[in-house]
């Protein structure tokens, strides 16, 4: 039963115009960058900028809108003998699978075509993880708020916070505490934000990391080690699981 719902949601979404447009946009953008640059490392830097901006935004906004749009469908399913948990997970995985698949098609295929390297692999994994994280956050926002407009507003705010406002605060902290040794604090602070964490993980893979001087070296020491990699993976997984679990909890108790 659960698989059936999942399959239905996935196929329904994957055929939707929006996902097709998203795939096409990513594909076009990556091909353009790759064919202008002809070099995977340089392509990675250009794609990175867009991924850190587009992927979270699309995932969270589309996720929120999708959740509100399928409210009637969910209500209908709830009348059937299906556990709320399986409805929730079907929705979650259906949505994130279709978004991830279109990301892999859009960005991964052109990269594989020109010869993928470790940086490209990092890019694709981070993109998929970012998709999962922001779908989780979208579900959190939309299950927490009943009103559609408020829900979308909340998810835009979450995106804005993680993409811009958080970094602004971190920069402010740097500036205020500039007389103190900060490198350890920075590692701690930035790993609290999934967008920063993925950005730094990818930057450390490409040669631009040499610009980062001793701060970069501190990061390289930490994130270059196995412990650091496991730590950052765990941090990203927490960002996926925690919002999803909270919204599942809300979803279970919700009075439709």
């Amino acid at each position: 039963m659960k698989i059936k719902i999942l399959k239905y949601i996935f196929l329904d979404l994957f055929r939707s115009k929006f996902i097709l447009a998203y795939t096409f946009f990513l594909l076009l953008m990556t091909i353009t960058v790759v064919y202008i640059g002809h070099d995977t490392s340089k392509a990675v830097i250009s794609i990175l900028n867009i991924i850190l901006f587009i992927v979270p935004l699309v995932s969270i906004i589309f996720g929120t809108i999708h959740f509100y749009n399928s409210r009637e469908f969910i209500e209908f399913l709830l009348t059937q003998p299906v556990a709320r948990k399986s409805i929730f997970w079907s929705e979650y995985f259906g949505l994130s699978a279709s978004l991830s698949l279109s990301f892999i098609t859009g960005v991964g295929l052109p990269l594989i075509f020109i010869g993928i390297n470790i940086q490209g692999v990092y890019l694709i994994i981070s993109g998929v993880l970012l998709t999962l994280i922001f779908v989780s956050l979208a579900f959190l926002a939309s299950s927490a708020v009943n009103d559609r407009v408020k829900g979308i507003g909340l998810s835009i705010l979450i995106w804005l916070y993680l993409s811009v406002i958080f970094d602004g605060f971190v920069m402010m902290i740097f500036y205020l505490l500039r007389d103190y040794p900060l490198d350890k604090i920075i590692v701690g602070l930035t790993s609290l934000n999934p967008v920063d964490l993925t950005r730094i993980l990818i930057l450390l893979q490409i040669e631009i990391s040499a610009l980062m001087g001793f701060t970069g070296a501190t990061f390289q020491n930490f994130f270059g080690s196995i412990t650091g990699k496991i730590y950052s993976l765990i941090m990203l997984l927490i960002w996926i699981i925690l919002p999803a679990m909270i919204s599942l909890r809300v979803f279970k108790r919700k009075n439709f």
Partner: peptide, 10 residues
């Protein structure tokens, strides 16, 4: 240290 914000939106 703020070099760590390289390539970020802010």
């Amino acid at each position: 240290e703020s070099i760590i914000m390289l390539k970020s939106l802010i």
